[in-house]
Simulated scan of single mutants.
Amino acid sequence: MSRYRGPRVRIIRRLGELPGLTRKAARKRSNPPGQHGQAPRKPSEYAKRLEEKQKLRFNYGLSERQLLRYVRKARRVKGSTGQVLLQLLEMRLDNTVFRLGMAPTIPAARQLVGHGHIQVNGSTVYSPSYECRPGDQISVKPQDASRKLVAAYAEYPGLATLPTHLEFDKGKLAGKVTAVVERQCVALQVNELMIVEFYSRKG
């Protein structure tokens, strides 16, 4: 399944708040989209795991194949597979740009990276999936167009709180990764253990 490009409010009505996907707020309704007033049925265990997986996929803007690759990579790392999975996704360059406040959403951050507006350690990086590491310097390309675009975004960041593993100088439009993200700093409310269980049958 490819990356979702449809209505975002419809997704957050179904899955709940996804801070990386959109800043729009869904109108409160008693039924999720597509139910047409029917009383919601109690979800099965599979449905619960599927919903948690979908939260992760839509929030970080991943295709099903990409997410499966991250799950398999997390399994090979020592430690809790669920927490390692969240760390891998949080340390992506597009998410790091978003968490620094340089873009209002992860899709906007992905576009900044893809269009060559973002540099890592002084070199332009075009891959949103680039894995940031402690010590990496994240900055804006020195061209006026790039700086004006990011400066406008930085006035209204997607999230108000800067996580502890990042530092950001708003005047210089530059940030630094100081550590690997901690679990409590992940903005998305998700049960990562259910996601690991969902993929346990996929090998």
Rank of each mutant, 00 (worst) to 15 (best):
T124S: 14
D169P: 00
F58K: 05
Q35V: 09
A160Y: 14
S123P: 13
N121M: 12
S146F: 07
P32I: 14
R183H: 14
Y70V: 12
Q38I: 13
L166K: 01
A179G: 01
L89S: 04
R8C: 05
R75G: 08
Q111V: 09
L50K: 15
R57H: 03
G79M: 05
M102E: 00
D144M: 14
T96W: 04
C132A: 05
S80K: 07
I195H: 00
G135V: 00
R10V: 10
R8F: 01
K24L: 06
S30T: 12
N121V: 09
P134R: 04
I12P: 02
H117D: 10
A25M: 15
T178F: 05
L112P: 04
R133Q: 08
P40S: 11
A152T: 15
E52I: 14
A109G: 12
E131T: 10
K78A: 11
P40A: 12
I118F: 15
K202A: 13
Q143R: 14
M194P: 05
P40E: 09
I12H: 03
V84A: 07
T105V: 02
H36G: 10
K78H: 13
A108S: 09
V9P: 06
P142T: 05
L21N: 02
M91C: 03
R69Q: 14
T96Y: 04
K28C: 11
L18R: 04
A154W: 02
N95T: 06
